[in-house]
Design a protein around this nucleic acid. Structure first.
Lengths: 139, 139
DNA sequence: GTTTATGCAAATTCTTTGCAATACT
DNA sequence: AGTATTGCAAAGAATTTGCATAAAC
């Protein structure tokens, strides 16, 4: 889903109002095609209040327009969710690649996570695979 | 590795001094057998300064006595590393299970991460699999 | 007109650094 | 004795809440 109009529909479907800030944030995610920290948004959009960007992410999280990416930095990071509703399966499993050189984190949509044999008694809800290494642009 | 004496040796081998704080932190990791936030340590050991606990974790990280666990919360979390040096392979690949009910995060040592076919050109350094669901104690 | 979103102020929590005092070897 | 560690002070960054104003529907 790369079309802004579709995201407007998505916002409306959740009764979220269409505002400049929300559209700008979505556009930026689409343009950058990578995981963003709130701080990235603050630097990109200094005219929006830090709290406004914070609450934009919170409301997007609530309706899974974005999702949080696990990372080791101690700072929350966010990725635009795959909103392809033509798929029947939920797309809650993600592989993310963190480049140790340039630092960017990208979702590898084409990389499926293999079935993992967990100990008996554990119920799986969601899988996140975090791969650290050198990305294709830096190698 | 569950013996405190072995951890004392480990500290000495890295020229880290044996202090009450460091031993208490290691003991607590061994006892809890789960991922801890710095805040967990602060609540458990209010008589140690917050900064002391912070630096304890930093120095443990430096020598890989602990490692950081990726998580979505935006707060750094730590796990005691597997210091089984009888293994030749580095044990940099981890599976962690986060229970959505009790919130605890545990390292599943017995769960190996399957080989993941990444796109051509990506160099893998480290793999972290984060599994969300319901743990065996809560189901 | 009603309701939601924003901006500002401010509190809270988390992370980090400097320095003098203390503890370890 | 010499060096590493700790505690205290304090700064910086990230997260969160309240409330009045402004914008969306």
């Amino acid at each position: 889903m790369e079309n802004l109009e579709e995201y407007k529909k998505l916002l409306r479907s959740h009764k979220l109002r269409i505002t400049d800030c929300r559209l700008d944030v979505i556009k930026y995610f689409l343009q950058e095609n990578r995981t963003l920290f709130q701080n990235d948004l603050e630097r990109q959009f200094p005219h929006y209040d830090r709290v406004t960007l914070y609450r934009t992410l919170i409301s997007f999280l609530k309706y899974k327009i974005v999702h949080q990416i696990p990372n080791s930095t101690g700072v929350a990071s966010y990725g635009l969710s795959n909103q392809d509703f033509t798929q029947t399966e939920s797309n809650d499993n993600h592989t993310h690649f963190k480049c140790n050189y340039c630092g960017t984190i990208k979702c590898l949509k084409e990389t499926a996570i293999p079935v993992v044999p967990l100990p008996v008694g554990y119920q799986i809800d969601k899988l996140n695979l975090i791969v650290d290494g050198i990305c294709i642009d830096c190698s």
